[in-house]
């Protein structure tokens, strides 16, 4: 029995993570073999992940704490620090 595009897209995350049972995986791949639209969807889903990571990836941002914030953090700690 074929699964529908809707069912395929519902289970896409499980398919990608290898969490689908063997029988489900076969049905999933049978659908992909005859449905270029779902192949496109899968490809674009993968691309979405990649574009998302690249758009906000941590290394893309300057990483420095403003000196006044460093001072505020240390002052807050000294004010709150319990005696050793």
């Amino acid at each position: 029995m074929f699964i529908t595009c809707e069912e395929l897209i519902d289970f896409l995350a499980d398919y990608r993570s290898g969490a689908l049972a063997a029988a489900q995986r076969v049905r999933f791949e049978e659908h992909l073999a005859v449905c270029p639209g779902c192949v496109d969807y899968l490809d674009s889903y993968e691309m979405t992940l990649r574009l998302g990571r690249e758009a906000v990836r941590p290394s893309a941002e300057p990483a420095e704490v403003p000196p006044e914030l460093v001072r505020a953090i240390l002052a807050a700690w000294r004010g709150a620090a319990p005696p050793l």
Partner: peptide, 22 residues
């Protein structure tokens, strides 16, 4: 991820139709 894909979709190019069985 699905919602992000839908938001990006109109900005991408090309066409291909789904032909899976109903």
């Amino acid at each position: 991820r699905q919602a992000l894909r839908e938001l990006l979709d109109p900005h991408m190019q090309g066409t291909r139709a789904c032909s899976s069985p109903a």
